[in-house]
């Protein structure tokens, strides 16, 4: 594999890194504030994406960014609803139980969404469609290219993630989130309104995930399983990076698309690489997780008996 090839593969991974990080940050936000692994995260994103599409197709006069905003708001509200209506009431239940609640929500959503949005299968707007332009640029003498949408996705993800981390570090809300993440009861006693914090975290996670869904679905046929892959990879990224801190899963979200693209590269694995791409990715990630059971950047907690 030539260096050109390697660099191109890395550049090819950038849009996916962007998409996965958007979903991953949502997952880790939810997990650290409510100790729940939200299996319905992908579907909340899908819901928002479908709504965006429906808005764009029905109200063709609206600019795209407005439809996107509508979709993100829808996911925002849906996430908040799930927290307020279900997770908050299930405070006393073990994390395993909360996980199963989200599985139930998954089952509900996966069946309701196709019914609600029956006719949306193709994301085309009469007169407008997504740009398929490819940008070429020069990097230390190597010519690399990347799709316009892909670059947009990556840049958006970086910006959004940057904003979230900045908020976590510098705003009062961020402090509240970190306090709740460390120990919810103590945070409550210290005056942090954990209910608002968790509801907002779920909502924010939903909204950001809808953004990721938008980029995933742009230019492709829409299906309720849109975010299925992304969600699995998002969770694996969290386990790989380590649930112990906020930035750690992002490392996972960077590694996984890289592994995936290298695994699917015909120069490396022959012409049938595409067939086994996902399997190889999974196995590599699994091995990494086994070697680092607390995540690459995770910490091991010893429990006092």
């Amino acid at each position: 594999m030539s260096i050109q090839d390697i660099l191109q593969t890395i550049v090819n991974s950038l849009p996916t890194i962007g998409r996965y990080s958007l979903i991953t940050i949502g997952i880790v936000l939810i997990f650290r504030t409510t100790a729940t692994t939200n299996f319905a995260q992908g579907l909340i994103a899908t819901f928002g994406t479908f709504l965006t599409t429906w808005a764009a197709l029905t109200y063709t006069a609206l600019p795209l960014w407005l439809c996107l905003a509508m979709g993100m708001t829808a996911s925002f509200l849906l996430g908040m609803f799930v927290d307020v209506a279900l997770i908050r009431r299930a405070r006393h239940i073990t994390p395993s139980g909360k996980q199963m609640i989200t599985m139930g929500v998954l089952m509900i959503l996966v069946n309701v969404i196709p019914v609600l949005f029956r006719d949306i299968t193709l994301w085309t707007r009469p007169g407008k469609s997504f740009s398929t332009a490819i940008l070429t640029f020069n990097f230390f003498g190597y010519t690399l290219n990347i799709t316009e949408m892909g670059l947009l996705c990556f840049v958006t993800a970086v910006v959004v993630l940057g904003a979230v981390f900045a908020a976590l570090k510098f705003t009062k809300w961020g402090l509240g989130v970190r306090a709740t993440a460390a120990n919810e009861s103590v945070a409550q006693m210290l005056g942090v309104n954990t209910r608002v914090i968790t509801a907002f975290s779920w909502a924010l996670a939903g909204g950001i995930a809808a953004l990721g869904g938008f980029f995933t679905g742009a230019g492709t046929a829409l299906n309720v399983t849109l975010m299925g892959n992304a969600q699995i990879y998002g969770f694996l990224a969290c386990v790989l990076g380590g649930f112990g801190s906020f930035p750690a899963p992002i490392l996972g979200a960077v590694i996984i698309p890289l592994v995936n693209n290298f695994a699917g590269n015909p120069n490396l694995f022959g012409p049938n690489a595409g067939m086994w791409q996902n399997m190889i990715t999974f196995i590599v990630i699994l091995l990494l997780i086994l070697i680092f059971p607390n995540g690459l950047l995770g910490k091991k907690y010893i429990k006092k008996v």
Partner: peptide
């Protein structure tokens, strides 16, 4: 595998396993 990975994360890993089988 389950011995290395704590409770709820096991669900995630087995989810991946399910996907591997599907592929």
């Amino acid at each position: 595998i389950s011995l290395r990975i704590e409770g709820i994360f096991l669900a995630i890993v087995t989810l991946g396993l399910c996907e591997i089988f599907y592929q």
